[in-house]
């Protein structure tokens, strides 16, 4: 049976009533598609205690905010969230669903795809429509060596894409969308996953995936103490701290800081690589960065060759000098 869907749904990720700003990137991406099709953009927030957040979203690019609240939806649990969203989508029939390409989105989108018979694309960095107004998704593959364009062509269900954080600009304030509540389907609230607890990362750490600036350290630091200099520079720049696999495997810094194929994929506006030679696996995770600064003792290493700005020299002299210079420049 042919599926007649209408409109773009941007599914928000939230924790403790706070919505992740990636939603505003989804709204930018969704707005373009909706405008081309003459349809509307709906932000869907699911959880508990989201009324304040819904108001802000309504004034920042969504035509409508659907608030799906229940005390039992306080924390993200895969099977329940997917079932609740699928019931909602079955009833209201959106054409396109966009989710962030985060752990949350990668958990939910595939479950929604199966439940809704939807075509599914991962990690979109570009979204276009073909002549028949079907969704064309651009994404990277093969460790960032290839750009693939895929077409979603489900005729009996909607289309779903997870969207890479920072691939789109965040929607600006403006517009006056409506806020409406949508009660979750009672049958969908019973799942087989129980939320036990959440341990937050240190509050002063910026998440790599959403960071506009990142300072990373690698084997060239030579010793764990080198990360004190990396952290100092990161703090001065207001940047997140990253690391190469070599630094993580040496036990200098925890795994969650690892950038690259076996770590996180990032696309900040500024990436500063300190003592990172630029193995292909590392490059795969950061080669979409806007400006790359390489600081290395080896002028011939791959990172120095791809860098927008390459600085050759001793890290232990250069990093403190750069920190001092930034402080001086700020006055």
């Amino acid at each position: 049976m042919a599926y007649e869907g209408k409109g773009v749904w941007c599914i928000a990720e939230s924790r403790g009533g706070k919505v992740s700003p990636v939603l505003f990137e989804l709204l930018t991406a969704g707005r373009k598609l909706a405008a081309a099709r003459g349809e509307t953009v709906t932000a869907v927030v699911i959880g508990h205690g989201l009324q304040d957040a819904a108001g802000e979203i309504a004034g920042r690019g969504a035509d409508q905010v659907l608030v799906v609240e229940d005390a039992s939806l306080k924390e993200f649990v895969d099977d329940v969230y997917a079932a609740v969203l699928a019931k909602l989508a079955e009833a209201r029939k959106p054409r396109t669903l966009l989710l962030p390409a985060t752990v949350y989105g990668r958990s939910l989108a595939p479950r929604l795809s199966v439940l809704l018979r939807a075509g599914l694309a991962a990690d979109a960095v570009g979204l276009e429509l073909d002549a028949e107004q079907r969704l064309l998704v651009t994404r990277s593959a093969y460790a960032g060596n290839v750009v693939a364009t895929v077409l979603l062509r489900s005729v009996d269900g909607p289309e779903i894409a997870t969207v890479r954080p920072l691939a789109f600009e965040r929607s600006a304030a403006g517009g006056a969308g409506t806020v409406a509540a949508a009660a979750p389907d009672a049958g969908a609230l019973a799942g087989k996953t129980a939320f036990v607890s959440f341990g937050a990362d240190r509050a002063d750490e910026i998440d790599l995936g959403a960071a506009e600036k990142i300072v990373s350290g690698g084997r060239g630091l030579g010793k764990p103490e080198g990360f004190e200099l990396v952290r100092k520079l990161a703090k001065t720049l207001g940047a997140a701290v990253g690391a190469s696999r070599a630094a993580v495997d040496s036990g200098w810094i925890p795994y969650k800081h690892q950038v690259g194929l076996t770590g996180r994929s990032v696309r900040p506006k500024l990436y500063v690589a300190c003592g990172i030679s630029g193995q292909i696996q590392h490059m795969a995770g950061m080669n979409a960065s806007g400006t790359i600064v390489a600081i290395n003792s080896d002028a011939e290493c791959p990172m120095m060759k791809v860098a927008t700005y390459a600085v050759q020299g001793d890290l232990y002299k250069l990093l403190p000098a750069i920190v001092a210079e930034i402080e001086k420049a700020r006055g």
Partner: peptide, 28 residues
């Protein structure tokens, strides 16, 4: 429900600038 319609190599980044200077402070 998905077709790969195109694969293309990633365009290479343009050549960068080498920061020069006598001392670490100059380079910074």
């Amino acid at each position: 429900r998905m077709d790969v319609v195109k694969m293309a190599p990633v365009p290479s980044r343009g050549a960068g600038v080498v920061i020069t200077g006598e001392t670490p402070e100059d380079k910074a």
